[in-house]
């Protein structure tokens, strides 16, 4: 075997090893989560999760109901996404189709910079500015509510939605625009009847990716949602998300206790949800790239 051949092979394996690391890490994380969480299935059993009471440290009777946490995460995520969609998509249409070149060069980096703000700093903003507004607008006893968290998270989802949607819209072939304009359609008709529908799968993917970001977000929600695990279907009360629960309780829990295992189950549920959302988003994104 020549030196060159050997060199070729070794470089190949080196790169392969690099590429494999991330896969191995993901598998290990998953295995680790399962291992730590597994004893819970025997006692007290998975059935205990289907309860409305999350009170793992209660001295009388501990409650491990995941329903308020899942509902809290779901409510904040869905609300944040609904708030972010109009801003993200309209902004993307504006930047891609209407803004002039200089406007675009100014706007796009600016919006993408929002994504670079540390979430703890956004949490400050939520605490000091947003929470008092929510409090006085709805006449609530506290401004730390699900709605406050949702608005803050929407702010974090907008850059993702806008940036990927804008790409999708700009990737719509120029020939579709020409065909529409040549038929006598005006610019607005062309944008909303041809360009946006043609970019729809990319726009949907951007929304899913924005949602994936929102579900997993921890710091901002822990700061502004009040963290009371209530199973109530209104965004105007304190809520607690899955991420906030893990972050707040993991540091103080006894290693190996039932509470400890329950928190690992919360982590598994969270991982499963983000995994599904991202998988769907990538699927949709791939079909649109092919088309």
């Amino acid at each position: 075997m020549s030196f060159r051949h050997l060199q070729d092979r070794s470089v190949k394996y080196f790169l392969l090893a690099g590429a494999s690391v991330s896969i191995v890490v993901v598998v290990l994380i998953f295995a680790f989560l399962i291992r730590e969480a597994l004893p819970y299935m025997k006692s007290p059993g998975l059935g205990s999760f289907f309860s409305e009471r999350w009170a793992p440290t209660s001295p009388l009777k501990a409650g491990y109901g995941l329903l308020p946490l899942v509902a809290g995460s779901a409510m904040v995520t869905i609300l944040a996404t609904l708030i972010a969609i109009p801003f993200g998509v309209c902004g993307a249409v504006y930047i891609a189709e209407i803004a002039g070149k200089r406007e675009r060069e100014l706007l796009k980096p600016f919006i993408e910079m929002i994504a670079a703000i540390p979430s703890v700093v956004l949490g400050f903003f939520g605490l000091v500015v947003l929470a008092p507004i929510v409090k006085s607008a709805f006449g609530l006893p506290t401004g730390l509510t699900g709605l406050t968290g949702a608005v803050l998270l929407a702010f974090m989802a907008v850059p993702t939605i806008m940036s990927i949607s804008e790409d999708a819209i700009r990737n719509v072939p120029r020939s579709y625009l020409d065909a529409s304009l040549a038929l006598g359609a005006n610019r607005v008709q062309t944008i909303f009847k041809i360009v946006v529908p043609a970019a729809m799968s990319g726009i949907i993917a951007s929304i899913m990716l924005g949602m994936g970001r929102v579900v997993g977000e921890t710091m901002a929600v822990i700061m502004v949602t009040g963290n009371a695990a209530q199973f109530r279907f209104t965004p105007l009360v304190q809520i607690r998300t899955m991420t906030a629960t893990i972050a707040a309780e993991m540091g103080e829990v006894t290693n190996g206790s039932t509470h400890y295992q329950a928190l690992f189950w919360v982590g598994i549920v969270l991982l499963f949800v983000t995994f599904c959302i991202n998988l769907v988003a990538l699927r949709v994104l791939r079909t649109y790239r092919r088309a």
Binding site: P173, S175, Y176, D178, A179, S180, L181, A182, L183, G184, I194, P197, A198, A291
Partner: peptide
Amino acid sequence: RKRVGMVFQKSNPFP
């Protein structure tokens, strides 16, 4: 443009 229709070099049906 309604009076003057156009057919392009590369066929460009909408998706």
